[in-house]
Amino acid sequence: MALIKNHELTPDTYTRIAGDAELPDQGGVLVDLQRWQDDWQSLGRRGSPVGVWLTSDQHPEIIADDLDQIDLVALEFPSFRDGRAYSYARLLRDRYGFSGELRAVGDVLPDQLLYMHRVGFDAFELAGQDPLSDYQTALEEFDVFYQPAADARATALRLRHARG
């Protein structure tokens, strides 16, 4: 499994913590929601980055008030057919103003990457032989976008009226 972040292959600096397993002495950790809710104070005191992993039935509203203490939110796609996390991502970016790393985890496939990027994900856990090339191909497939989303891409509407 490779991690692509901000368009590059990147080593994962977060250690995934299962349930209430022990934390390493230092370095970023990625915990589940329960662990965050139980231990948020001690997690904050460690002085290292904290990520929270949400499953697809955990609405990020639950952590909306904590987001200034969270560096990474990982949203899980249990199956690529489960599209809830697209809306969670929009809400995290547009509604709750989250500007940290938003990572797509689980059943993340090349054919959905562009949509994920558009709704606000900037990091992706990808399998496959050449994930970076899959990623680049997927993101370059389209240059025209009809609807505004959580990305900076100009919509067709804007371009149409900008040229006057």
Binding site: G83, Y86, S87, Y115, V119, Y146, Q147
Partner: peptide, 14 residues
């Protein structure tokens, strides 16, 4: 129609 085509958020609805 244009709004719905390749809508990134709503292409994997229930």
């Amino acid at each position: 129609r244009q709004y719905s085509i390749l809508n990134p958020e709503f292409s994997y609805l229930p």
